[in-house]
Every structure is written in structure tokens, then in C-alpha cells.
Simulated scan of single mutants.
Amino acid sequence: MLRCFIEGFLVSISNPKAVIFFMSIFPQFIDVTQEYAPQFVLLAATFSVLVIVIHTIYAAFASFAKSKLSSKKGNALLNKISGGVFVSFGVGLAASSK
């Protein structure tokens, strides 16, 4: 578990998109007249809590969807919805003009 965390942390910390994001967003919320460290810790903690909450919601939704879609009834409903979407795309493509 610790190894997975360290690998994920190293991948995230070396991601240039994440570094650029934090370098562009965090300074907007830092008051230069106040001490830097507590403000940074508060921003980092807030971001971390939000990420944990959002990923927990994703995991709960995925678990719920898996339980519903793995049944025969759920699978049939998913197939009907998917088929309807593809038929709609086909009708839209056929009706469009260049």
C-alpha cells in the first residue's frame, strides 16, 4: 500500500501540468502581507480534502453503477440506451447536409 502511494505521489509531483496548475492558481490566493507557510498549508489541505471527497464520490457511484449494470435487467437497459444513441447518431448523420 505504501509503495503504491509513493509511486502515485512521485508520478503526480513530476507531472508538469500539475506543477504549472499549482504555480498559476495558488499565488492568487496568497496574501503577501501575511506569513506564507500557513496559507500554503491551508490551500494544500483544502485541495487534498476536495480531491479525496470527489474521488470517494466517484468510487461510490462506480460501485453503485456496477451493481446495477451487472444484472440482466440493467445490462438489457444499457444495451437499449446505447442502441438508441447510435440510431440517433445515424439519423442525425443521414439528415445532415454538407
Rank of each mutant, 00 (worst) to 15 (best):
M1P: 10
L2N: 00
R3H: 15
R3Y: 14
C4G: 13
C4K: 09
F5A: 15
G8C: 07
G8T: 06
F9A: 15
F9T: 08
F9S: 01
L10R: 10
V11E: 15
V11M: 13
V11Q: 13
S12E: 06
S12N: 08
S12R: 05
I13S: 14
S14C: 11
S14N: 15
N15V: 03
N15G: 08
A18E: 12
I20Y: 15
F21W: 04
F22Y: 08
F22G: 08
F22M: 15
M23Y: 08
S24V: 15
S24N: 14
I25Y: 13
I25K: 14
F26C: 03
Q28K: 12
Q28T: 01
I30L: 10
D31P: 01
D31C: 00
V32Q: 07
V32Y: 04
T33R: 11
Q34S: 11
Y36T: 14
Q39C: 02
Q39L: 02
L43N: 00
T46I: 08
F47W: 03
F47A: 08
F47N: 07
S48C: 11
S48G: 13
S48P: 01
V51S: 12
V51D: 11
I52Q: 11
V53E: 07
I54H: 14
I54G: 09
H55T: 15
H55P: 02
Y58V: 06
A59R: 04
A60N: 04
F61S: 01
A62E: 10
S63Y: 13
F64L: 10
F64N: 01
F64Q: 02
A65Y: 04
K66C: 09
K66L: 14
L69M: 10
S70W: 00
S71W: 03
S71Y: 00
K72A: 09
K72W: 13
K72H: 07
K73E: 14
G74W: 03
G74M: 01
A76M: 05
A76Q: 06
L77R: 02
N79H: 00
N79W: 01
K80A: 09
I81T: 05
S82R: 12
G83S: 01
G83P: 02
G83Y: 04
G84I: 02
G84Y: 09
V85I: 08
F86P: 06
F86M: 08
V87K: 09
V87M: 08
S88I: 10
S88E: 10
S88D: 06
G92R: 13
G92N: 13
A94Q: 07
A94M: 15
A94C: 05
A95W: 07
S96K: 01
S97L: 15
